[in-house]
Simulated scan of single mutants.
Amino acid sequence: MKHYNLIVTALIFSGLFLVSCQQKDTVENKEYSGVKIANPIIYEVLVTNPNPEDDWKTECLANTNIHDLVKDIINAVRNGDLPAFDYYDNHQLSIPELEKIIAESDLMNKTGNIQFEEEWFWNAKKLSLEKRVKKMMFGYEIYDALGKVRGYKASFVVDLYPDTK
Rank of each mutant, 00 (worst) to 15 (best):
Y161A: 09
Y140A: 05
D163S: 08
K165L: 13
M137T: 07
K165Y: 13
F13D: 03
D81P: 03
I142V: 04
D68H: 09
D55W: 14
V133K: 01
F156C: 08
W120T: 12
F138P: 00
I142C: 03
D72E: 14
M1Y: 15
Y161V: 14
N39H: 08
Y88W: 13
G34Q: 03
E119C: 08
I101G: 00
N63A: 12
I142D: 01
L107T: 03
M136W: 13
N49V: 10
L18T: 09
D106M: 02
T64C: 07
V27K: 11
N113T: 13
E104I: 02
L61F: 10
A10T: 06
D163Q: 11
V47D: 01
Y87I: 09
Y88F: 15
A62G: 03
T9A: 08
K131I: 10
S128I: 09
V47L: 04
K126D: 12
K100L: 13
Y143K: 02
I101S: 00
K165H: 14
A84V: 04
K148W: 13
A38D: 10
D72K: 08
V35E: 11
I41D: 11
I74Y: 08
K131Y: 14
L98H: 00
N109Y: 09
G147L: 05
D159K: 02
W122N: 01
S105V: 05
K2Q: 07
K165N: 14
E119L: 10
K125M: 13
